[in-house]
């Protein structure tokens, strides 16, 4: 077990060093980490046996909140944009979740999909607020009041994202080990017993749903300032499907899984676009099949194997 934190720390160090060896990777990895946060949110709900096919909505809410604050309000410092985006996403998660966490299985999945498509339609049509299909542009934000060149800001953003990955990942880890986090897994195995312990499954799931929306909001804010442009497509259902794919591919047992899945997919995408553009979907499909058949714990399972982790009792599997 001791080897696992060391491997994860080495992986984080590798991520920090990667742009020094290959500068073009910085943007790819920033977007991958951003999507990893949203996939982590999806993975949280998967622990309770709930598949959200609409979580890109909260990624988009975070991105639009950051863009709106920067463009319409004129507050464009990343250290203000980020908490604002997270707060708006969490609030959206709380409101939507209050209605959706009453449902289970296919109903939960499809209702998330439906609500996300409403959000997509609103983002496309409310031109005066969202910029319609043109979306919203974000100028390079300041950082603690300092104006930076685009290249400098992108570099700072990348390393802030890695720090966030470590800090937020640790907080989510603590949450999952807490009574509230354990109750989340308990919803999946025995909701009746949970209620007879005096614990509301609805409240337990609503807390998880709100946290998962906040995580997606972190990703949305990072992606918005990294790309510099927010579009309704951020909320499109295929993006939500991509997040589920990322979580499953990476593995939901550990915090690192969704990030591993996201980095894996973004790197393959980048390579495929350059060398085999037509084969992108084929490669992803084959990778997913390989994971389903040979890696039931996702790509994170490979890391666990390397670390010698064999005892998976009590952990949720895919």
């Amino acid at each position: 077990m001791r080897a696992l934190p060391l491997i994860l720390a080495a992986g984080l160090a590798l991520l920090a060093l990667a742009p020094l060896a290959a500068p073009y990777l910085q943007f790819v990895l920033t977007v991958a980490v951003a999507k990893g946060f949203a996939a982590l949110g999806v993975a949280l709900l998967l622990r309770a046996g709930l598949i959200s096919l609409g979580h890109a909505m909260f990624f988009a809410v975070g991105a639009y909140a950051a863009a709106f604050l920067a463009q319409a309000v004129g507050i464009n410092d990343f250290l203000l944009l980020l908490p604002f985006a997270v707060a708006v996403s969490a609030l959206a998660g709380l409101l939507v979740g209050a209605f959706l966490v009453r449902y289970r299985a296919i109903f939960f999945a499809m209702l998330n999909l439906a609500v996300s498509m409403v959000a997509y339609a609103l983002a496309s049509k409310l031109y005066s607020i969202t910029g319609g299909t043109d979306g919203l542009r974000i100028d390079v934000p300041t950082l603690m009041g300092m104006s930076l060149e685009k290249a400098q800001f992108d570099q700072a953003l990348y390393y802030i994202s890695l720090v966030l990955l470590a800090v937020v990942g640790w907080l989510v880890h603590r949450y999952l080990k807490s009574p509230l986090g354990q109750a989340l897994a308990a919803v999946h195995t025995n909701e009746v017993r949970l209620e007879y312990l005096g614990v509301s499954a609805w409240s337990t799931l609503l807390a998880a749903y709100t946290i998962s929306a906040a995580l997606a909001g972190i990703g949305g804010a990072i992606a918005a300032v990294a790309i510099g442009h927010v579009l309704p497509e951020y909320a499109f259902w295929t993006e939500s499907g991509h997040l589920v794919l990322t979580a499953v591919l990476g593995g939901i047992a550990g915090i690192a899984g969704p990030f591993v899945g996201s980095i894996f997919l973004e790197l393959i995408h980048t390579v495929a676009v350059g060398y085999a553009a037509e084969a992108w979907n084929l490669i992803v499909g084959v990778a997913l099949l390989a994971v389903i058949f040979f890696l039931p714990r996702g790509l994170f399972g490979l890391i666990e194997s390397a670390a010698g982790v064999k005892d998976h009792r009590g952990e949720t599997e895919l």
């Binding site: 080990k177 009574p179 509230l180 986090g181 354990q182 109750a183 308990a186």
Partner: peptide, 20 residues
């Protein structure tokens, strides 16, 4: 863990960062 979860439920489940 089943028993500890019941103990936690009795004392209040809303502990998001203290370990079970």
């Amino acid at each position: 863990e089943n028993v500890m979860l019941a103990l936690a439920a009795h004392r209040g489940i809303w502990q998001a960062f203290a370990p079970l």
